[in-house]
Design a protein around this nucleic acid. Structure first.
Lengths: 191, 191
DNA sequence: ACCTGAACACCGTTCAAGT
DNA sequence: ACCTGAACACCGTTCAAGT
């Protein structure tokens, strides 16, 4: 369709957008699939993106940007809302979850921002020790990602979405209660 | 080395053992790597094993068989010990963790046995509602797998093993406290 | 700078043999 | 039944062009 040297009008945002579309479609994600959607040779993507992992990181960070800022006046509820929104976001893009699992440590600016928002909630809730904040943040992030991954695992009994979200909410309440050191009753065994 | 038709003396346990060795070595896991270690053509494995996923499931289940039975007289401590042993086991075989993440639902006999052991602990601790047991089991398993996956993610700051285990222990205490509905103080913010 | 064609070094799995 | 050789349908990525 195009001779070597002819421009295709590709841009970095366009590549990221195409990657999102491939991820949200049924097809399995690959560089070649993204290129195919753009009507371009597979290696053309490397002019705009470092590689597969970087591309997935970009998609991930773009999604995280959509997370709303939690209410600052009620820190516990704000934290719960924030983590629930994160979990919902992951469930809405299941094909991204495996990559999220592998990339838990290294993240983009919006992931970093999410971490700092969580820290603010913890501070406002009275968790002043920085090490305690780090522990709480890691545990909560693991819970969100791990639970989303549980929903992705398509084997045997696929685990209904209601059950998944109820399980997540129960664990989240226990973790937040624990991290905040309060004796307030959570939501005891839902379903 | 061998003409088509010549036996190589391959057995199913030998294939599983070779897979374990490849996983615990530095090299990345592949059917071809397992076959290479056995001095056999890649497709020879399919005479003894259904495929890659089934082979990894077999390795996984063999590892889970090594988990010790927890003390039955102290249900809370037994549950904590059991989950800690599971976490340690996953940390000892990091290259298996991504597969474990993907396969959370469908498991072999020893995984099933682990689930029932957890249920027994919960019953002994006074959690009689079956739905509550299921929720607790899912949350605890997600915590163990998710935390182990966090240790595997080799990017940026690799997160020291001490920190990882301390984070796991803190989250585990919070979850067990929550699941058991007790107001007993856990281990507040370690590290 | 951007894109193509061809290629490299991999994958998991299948199929038609051979004994 | 067990194993081989060859092949199929994929991967991510690199390299040498072309404009």
């Amino acid at each position: 369709m195009r001779a070597p040297g002819q421009r295709a009008g590709l841009t970095r945002p366009a590549v990221v957008q195409a990657a999102r579309e491939v991820l949200d479609d049924g097809a399995s994600f690959s560089m070649r699939a993204v290129a195919g959607r753009l009507g371009v040779a597979p290696n053309a993507l490397y002019s705009h993106v470092g590689g597969r992992d970087e591309l997935l990181d970009l998609v991930l960070d773009e999604l995280l940007a959509a997370l709303p800022a939690p209410a600052t006046d009620a820190p516990r509820a704000g934290l719960v809302d924030l983590m629930t929104a994160t979990h919902d976001l992951l469930l809405a893009h299941p094909r991204l979850v495996p990559h999220f699992v592998a990339r838990q440590g290294s993240r983009g600016p919006n992931a970093r921002r999410l971490g700092e928002t969580m820290r603010s909630c913890l501070v406002a809730a009275g968790v002043v020790d920085r090490g305690a904040q780090d522990t709480a943040i890691r545990v909560l992030v693991v819970h969100a990602i791990g639970n989303a991954a549980l929903g992705v695992a398509a084997d045997g009994a696929p685990l209904p979405a209601d059950t998944l979200r109820a399980t997540y909410a129960a664990g989240l309440a226990w973790l937040v209660d624990g991290a905040l050191g309060s004796a307030s009753a959570g939501h005891p065994h839902p379903a």
